[in-house]
Computed example of a mutant assay.
Amino acid sequence: MSKPSNEELIKALNAAGSAHHDYEAKFLKGKRDEFWAGWYASYVLGRLGDFATPSDLTNWLTQAPSSDDWFKSAAQYISERL
């Protein structure tokens, strides 16, 4: 699989965020998912293909710097590691 563009990563991470919010609300009854990064990684890889290993992507998501636009900074962080 080829490396996804920054824009593709941003869109996939945003979609993962929306879907994960619904998952926490409906299935976890509003509790925080401590394993969110693995959930996001599975979602993103399912959407964009196997451009990274699930464990690498999970680690990168937890290491991505916090910012006002986390999806954008996380996408950049991931791109730099591919």
Score class of each variant (00 low, 15 high):
71 F>V: 00
81 R>P: 11
5 S>R: 08
7 E>F: 04
16 A>T: 07
47 R>Y: 05
28 L>W: 02
61 L>T: 03
61 L>S: 03
15 A>D: 12
79 S>Q: 14
71 F>A: 09
28 L>V: 04
76 Q>C: 00
40 Y>Q: 12
6 N>I: 11
31 K>N: 13
46 G>Q: 07
33 D>V: 01
46 G>A: 12
25 A>N: 02
33 D>I: 01
73 S>Q: 12
54 P>S: 10
21 H>K: 12
74 A>Y: 07
51 F>I: 11
60 W>S: 02
33 D>Y: 08
31 K>Q: 13
70 W>E: 06
70 W>A: 05
9 L>A: 03
55 S>I: 08
70 W>T: 02
55 S>M: 09
64 A>T: 03
14 N>L: 11
2 S>E: 14
25 A>R: 02
50 D>F: 04
53 T>P: 00
54 P>H: 10
53 T>C: 01
29 K>Q: 14
9 L>N: 01
19 A>V: 14
15 A>Q: 10
34 E>L: 15
12 A>F: 08
61 L>W: 01
80 E>H: 09
67 S>M: 03
70 W>K: 08
58 T>K: 13
53 T>G: 12
35 F>I: 10
16 A>H: 04
17 G>F: 01
50 D>N: 13
7 E>A: 14
51 F>K: 06
52 A>K: 12
73 S>D: 14
14 N>S: 08
72 K>I: 11
11 K>Q: 13
17 G>S: 14
67 S>W: 00
47 R>I: 06
37 A>M: 04
50 D>A: 13
78 I>D: 03
33 D>K: 05
26 K>F: 09
65 P>S: 05
82 L>I: 15
51 F>A: 11
58 T>G: 02
67 S>P: 02
26 K>I: 11
57 L>M: 06
66 S>A: 10
11 K>D: 12
68 D>I: 05
15 A>V: 05
53 T>Q: 06
1 M>E: 12
30 G>R: 10
10 I>M: 03
5 S>Q: 05
42 S>R: 15
81 R>I: 10
53 T>A: 13
71 F>Q: 05
37 A>G: 06
27 F>V: 13
22 D>I: 14
34 E>G: 15
45 L>W: 07
52 A>C: 09
35 F>H: 14
37 A>V: 01
14 N>Q: 13
70 W>R: 06
2 S>N: 13
27 F>G: 08
34 E>W: 13
26 K>G: 02
37 A>K: 06
